[in-house]
Design a binder for these strands. Sequence first.
DNA 1: TATACTCTCTGTAGTAACTACAGGAACAAG
DNA 2: CTTGTTCCTGTAGTTACTACAGAGAGTATA
Lengths: 132, 132
Amino acid sequence: MQPSVKRGKLAKIAGCNIETIRYYENIELLRAVDRTSSGHRVYSSDDQARLRFILRARELGFSIAELRGLLGLVDSNEYTCGEVLAVTNNHITTIQQKISDLKRLEQTLSDMAQKCDGGEVPDCAIVDAMFH
Amino acid sequence: MQPSVKRGKLAKIAGCNIETIRYYENIELLRAVDRTSSGHRVYSSDDQARLRFILRARELGFSIAELRGLLGLVDSNEYTCGEVLAVTNNHITTIQQKISDLKRLEQTLSDMAQKCDGGEVPDCAIVDAMFH
DNA sequence: TATACTCTCTGTAGTAACTACAGGAACAAG
DNA sequence: CTTGTTCCTGTAGTTACTACAGAGAGTATA
């Protein structure tokens, strides 16, 4: 980890789009970092770690709102393991719900596709099913 | 099915938000329907069927872009069963991909949650994992 | 008929989470 | 010293809607 980098390099290191970093600053997930005399942003290693935390949580599907909650806990320095676990379990439940919704969808679509012979005729069980 | 209705009633019948109908007209999924002399929209039973088709496809997770393709086929009156099946199978593949992504996510989160004892201590395996 | 209430019309802005410009200043290399 | 890359800012676009404001139209009741 570099001790201090500018925005372009940080994006490269962290593996995100350069504009994403500015976006996170705008919505105050990242603090307004130090600047050079000419106004270029300079990121410390703490800033880099925080960005990685954010990106990792996003990869894991946490919304910005959930992430804000998580960061609020971490920033308070008074968070407990139990609080973090609660947010995480909540998120797991959401994901499980999405999975089951998508499975039902897949089933419905597969059933429709099954009934369709895929031939050259302009009469299709899928279209019929969608028109009801 | 009513022979002709206005926007509010159509929304109620079809089970969507009234503004959604105008939106679909704007993006040209629905045609610009007939109006009364004072400018109120009047929907025929064909218009109603088309809206239901659109809403059903959306329920099934087709994006507006996919739907546009589907409607293009149907509107051409020269579509074949095979073409519709291709769009559908494509969509099924996308959904399956999403399901497997979400399952991996769930696994990762569950693993993290497992390692966390949820206690009162300010030292959390989940936070550690997210900071890497 | 007058009034009141509901419905519809229009354009516009807001949502989530970014991404992509444009125009200009600063920095690094040769 | 010039060229090329990086950085700055503000703003607009993406998806699929949803919500609002202000004004006109339609309907029900007194």
